[in-house]
């Protein structure tokens, strides 16, 4: 996917573990691991809102568009 999420970089900068973030935002560690690994297909505004609030950042700090990456096929 051409959208990359820098959750690991942001966690390192805030010296916060994934489990701690999970407790703060109320999202399971498994789901956050999917986000961190770039396996998630979509992100809700509510999730983005919670992440930005707890990590004290802007959505742009978390995400990056990489034009060189291939587009994810919509087909199964």
């Amino acid at each position: 996917m051409a959208i990359r999420l820098h959750l690991d970089r942001m966690l390192l900068a805030r010296r916060m573990s994934l489990t701690e973030l999970s407790d703060r935002v109320g999202i399971g560690v498994a789901d956050l691991t999917l986000l961190k690994g770039g396996q998630a297909r979509a992100i809700r505004f509510t999730t983005l809102d919670a992440l930005c609030r707890e990590l004290d950042c802007q959505p742009g700090d978390l995400m990056q568009f990489d034009a060189g990456e291939p587009e994810t096929p919509a087909e199964l």
Binding site: L34, R41, T47, A74
Partner: peptide
Amino acid sequence: FREGARLRQDAELTI
């Protein structure tokens, strides 16, 4: 069913 399976997978991978 193919479209249904795709939507289901989308829903599962929406965080």
